[in-house]
């Protein structure tokens, strides 16, 4: 109960954003035709790599002696970047094939 009160008092803006984003997401995605489902999925996949932003903030805010945070954070950046760069690149490759026509 305390948890719910705490969330409602301190994190209201983010809750609003959350709910708007959910509706917007459903609205946007339901317009994508079947033909494009694979690129949509791999593009979305690349976007889910936004977690690297969190990883970057984590590493930047850590002290240079805090080896645990640095280790976890840098590995997270590495894996997340593969996801983001690889995801967008492979999506681009696929979509080039659709554009030829």
């Amino acid at each position: 109960m305390n948890l719910i009160i705490e969330i409602l008092t301190h994190h209201l803006t983010i809750l609003f954003a959350l709910i708007m984003a959910i509706f917007l997401g459903f609205e946007l995605i339901s317009k994508v035709p079947t033909v494009l489902h694979t690129p949509l999925m791999s593009g979305a996949n690349a976007i889910s790599g936004v977690v690297i932003i969190g990883a970057i903030i984590l590493v930047r805010s850590s002290g240079s002696e805090d080896y645990i945070s640095l280790g976890l954070g840098s590995l997270a950046i590495l894996l997340g970047t593969i996801n983001v760069v690889g995801g967008h690149a492979v999506t681009n490759r696929m979509l080039q094939m659709f554009r030829k026509k």
Partner: peptide
């Protein structure tokens, strides 16, 4: 950015 990006991906996965 993380919130919006994540939710958009979540919606797309849920719809599919």
């Amino acid at each position: 950015i993380m919130l919006m990006g994540g939710i958009l991906v979540g919606s797309s996965g849920a719809i599919l």
